[in-house]
Design a protein around this nucleic acid. Sequence first.
DNA 1: ATAATATGAGTGAGCGCTCACTCAGAAGGA
DNA 2: TCCTTCTGAGTGAGCGCTCACTCATATTAT
Lengths: 205, 205
Amino acid sequence: MPSVRRVDQAERRRRILEAALDLFARNGFHRTSTRQIARAAGVAEGTIFNHFPTKKDLLVAAAAQVVDDYFREEIEPLPRESTLEALRETFRTRLELGLRHAERIRFLLAELLSNQEMRQAYFEAVVLRLTDHLVRLLEQRIAQGFLRPCNVRVVAGALVGAFLTFLLVALLDEKRRLLTSSVSEISDELARLFLYGLEPGPAEG
Amino acid sequence: MPSVRRVDQAERRRRILEAALDLFARNGFHRTSTRQIARAAGVAEGTIFNHFPTKKDLLVAAAAQVVDDYFREEIEPLPRESTLEALRETFRTRLELGLRHAERIRFLLAELLSNQEMRQAYFEAVVLRLTDHLVRLLEQRIAQGFLRPCNVRVVAGALVGAFLTFLLVALLDEKRRLLTSSVSEISDELARLFLYGLEPGPAEG
DNA sequence: ATAATATGAGTGAGCGCTCACTCAGAAGGA
DNA sequence: TCCTTCTGAGTGAGCGCTCACTCATATTAT
């Protein structure tokens, strides 16, 4: 039977991680001191180091938390009915989820870009996971004849890129000079772009 | 006539900036000390502060340098002949230039993501500049009837996103598990994707 | 000689992390 | 039940260190 003590311990750890992630996302890893984290978590500074050997371990745990939270809500496969509808809905739900997690995703990306040691692990966890999923979906639908054959890895990269960029732009564009459309308008246009391309043609109607 | 001293001064400033940018790109802003910069530039630590009041000023100047260097090589408008060819060539030259500047672009992006103060200024300088250029090109070609009407801002965002993502992936994917194709293959596929879309059709041949 | 500039040891602030100590609560004997 | 002993997580002042930045002095150009 788990003692009362152990429950409290897990809860304390969770609170420290929560406080750290919150501060990292708002102010960045380097601008956040362990003293600040302790104050925000309502514990003594030393307690942090009972749960996480170093500040870097806290960073790694925080980054893992972001990835886990994002992928908890599963990316469901495109329904078979209409490819355009399916693409649009996938874009919409993913963009909305991303925008909800935007601050934390920015923190994760910033760390990935500036922290050489974290790249390998999280590149695998985030980018490969996203694109592998897309690659499987694309291959399946090409086999079914719904999409033309193509270099699926390049196309998957472009899809992830278009998606990530909207998150970044949403974060950077505080004056809303670029993100003037709504999420559903954007999803609409992206779905049409990737399905029909930019060439004028009969697909337009 | 400019004195020898003044030439030396400008040259010194340039060397300090060069050394700082090099170290920032390799190790990140926070992991680079002013002592390191001084040693790399071959000057005393105090000299840095004669040219740049604070370390942050050095960061701002370094970031500006990256933007200037990237945009020095002008983005020429698409030639009129073949839209597919033009798109492909634009992607190819931009990707190659980006890959040459990759480490510095990563540094710039990392700072943009983690440094709240720099966002406003550099968002304008980088993202708006790139997309505004694309928006103008797209509108022009739509008016000429070469492309279907569309939400040009969304499409421009997707193009910039696909482009940026390949740079990021190139930087993160050390084991080359995603970037298995050559730059020209990638440009080829992207041009076809954005022009014809993914739907099977007569455009395929 | 004078002004302009370069120098680098020095400064204090702030950092991650430690460790001697505290004390609530579990364990156990009577 | 009550008292004693044991345990280990929690605590926070403080350590050692690094940092950006300063300033008295040296060097150099005119």
